[in-house]
Design a binder for these strands. Sequence first.
DNA 1: GATGTAAATATTTAGACAGCATGTC
DNA 2: CTAAATATTTACATC
Length: 765
Amino acid sequence: MEVSDVPAVPEWLPGHLDADGVESLYPPQAAAVEAGVTEGESLVASIPTASGKTLIATLAMLSAVKRGGKALYIVPLRALASEKKAEFEQFEQYGVDVGVSTGNYDSDGEWLAKKDIIVATSEKVDSLVRNGAPWLAQLDCVVADEVHLVDDPTRGPTLEVTLAKLRSRNPGLQIVALSATIGNAGELADWLDAELVDSSWRPIDLRKGVHFGQALHFDDGTQEQLSVQGNEKPTAAIVRDTLRDTVEDGETVEEGGSTLVFVNSRRNAEAAARRLANVVSPELDGDELAALADVADEIRDVSDTETSDDLADAVEKGAAFHHAGLSPDHRELVEAAFRDRLVKCVCATPTLAAGVNTPSRRVVVRDWRRYSGDAGGMQPLSVLEVHQMMGRAGRPGMDPYGEALLLASSHDELDELFERYVWADPDPVESKLAAEPAMRTHLLATVASGFADSRETLLSFLDGTLYAAQTDEQGRLERVVDDMLAYLERNDFIERSRDGDTERLTATNLGHTVSRLYLDPMSAATIIDGIADADDPSALGLYHLVSRTPDMYQLYLRSGEREQYTQVAYDHETELLGTQPSEFEESRFEDWLAALKTAKLLDDWASETDEDRITDRYGVGPGDIRGKVDTAEWLLGAAESLAGERGFGNVQAIREAKKRVQYGVRQELIDLADVRNVGRKRARRLYEAGIESRDQLRNADKSVVLAALRGRERTAETVLEHAGHPNPEMTDVTPDPDAEPVVATDTSGSSESAEENDQSSLGDF
DNA sequence: GATGTAAATATTTAGACAGCATGTC
DNA sequence: CTAAATATTTACATC
């Protein structure tokens, strides 16, 4: 089908796509159009990665916009939200407005109401529904990207409930659900009353195979010999093989390409990158090495940690690792260098399989089992997960085909891998809505936002979910609902009242607050219990409290740390809030200690401890600090609201603890750090120079400020301007030598990087 | 006694959404 | 109820 034959899309679209080199539709796209996506028909598209899902969504959304409507694009990751926004902004020249809404990057409220296309995470949409964003009523088309995630035990129910709510509020709504290839796409289509496009068609061929011995065995029955040097590992041999040009009759028929290696732990990723760097580097030319050295320098500038150094060392040699312990800057640098074909080999944990688009000539799924605490050992990855990783092979328009390989160490394993992953039918997707944590959260939200006002209406609302469509065990749902309603009532989140014959459910004020704050009710109960009797809680106590909440993911206690933190608990006994579980309650006590470890990390951060000391002390990456700090900030904000709601007298203490994590400063710097452009480092220097508050900064001697900020005029000017100084101008001001910072931190480095390190990398968001 | 290497033993283990109020060089 | 790769320590040989 030609683009010009697609009905109901804007007139300018065929021309625009033509200029992009798109003339005709891929078969699944054509099928979607025939099913009526551009005419408001709902659709479930279960098709492989990179087979043109985005265009299907685009056609649907633009046709809705053309009819004067509004479209919402739901993504699972914040990183994807910005990627999609950038992609849709190409249509702004035709008057299509695009907006984004996620937790940290928000263009909220009124402003979104004017946009034609809005990109948001599923949690954000859920939150908007709860808080009754008026523009939701104007939606005509909702795209749900990566719908197979309804299978996810923690985040799946949110997507499921959100879709159900949007549909029940707006019956004519068009839903376009995009999914990886799954086993039960038909079931999803039935649930959403949608047409179905279920196809395994791909624009570029994907050859799946298994490596065994010295050969690659492919799914088309062919084999390829691999030249192995010495006793090198299979992954090394594959990476080198991928890198070399394929030469036939003295002519290069195919240029060398890059490899993406998936492993099962961060440490493995780093170790593999270190080893493979030595395989890649001999194959690089001078230009490439120079460009890589530049990237390595940028990486070192991001933060002064071991992770940063190790990553830069690998990148210098053309390899890299990628996992969630990296700071967002690190991740982006690695992704960009890999896309630019500068870095030839990236060793990654699953972050890269689900995240932004980073295709590669070859993909190696090195580890197909992963440790799982509750399963008590190594568990095989799901078919879907492995397929998602494999799907990263082959760059559209650049490679003739992609190759994805698993590694076998025995003949039996070779057979098993073919059986389990290469030939395997995709797994079906199953709703996890009946899990208790999901239920207590969504039941409260459903009652609080007025979707249901009784047990009956609640159950009938739940009837519109995928869970109801899938289960034949009717009693289970009712049982969980009753349990969770009892829990919510016990904790004063909902109330039951009699209205004639029927029992009515209403959310209490507290319940409304909890739902609005987007807290797990159990987190709210924990927090309230902890702060209720704490007149003057310490920062550490509050950090521990929010770290114990189910909304904070746990750090892991390493060997010897059990004793260490038991001692810490003893030392700070009086500060810790709530009741301490008995030491004999094995797992509860361990969780409590793990939360204490998290609390200490936050406390260190809020005591101006250096980033590299924290990463070292707690065995975490820079990205983990960011994550913890972020979550703590949110939960303390929630705690502040809850304390206000309950009329507790400790609101101020909570706010201060929040500001301290937020800025990473001690008590005395909060006021200074509140000034824009002043982070933990600058605030400390100003303080040392005798400027101890915002007021003092406003009226400060300019030469003192300039010296404290290490003679950087531009910085000093902006800082003074934001502090409200009457005349921030720095011309002819000379730094006061008495006010210069005494710390001998590297003045040797380039001024650029010194300046970047000056403001902590966690400062801006 | 310093150094190097192999073998035994110990340790560790993926990912990531959200409130609110305002605006980064 | 299930593992495996890497890190660390120890044992031992060599200079």
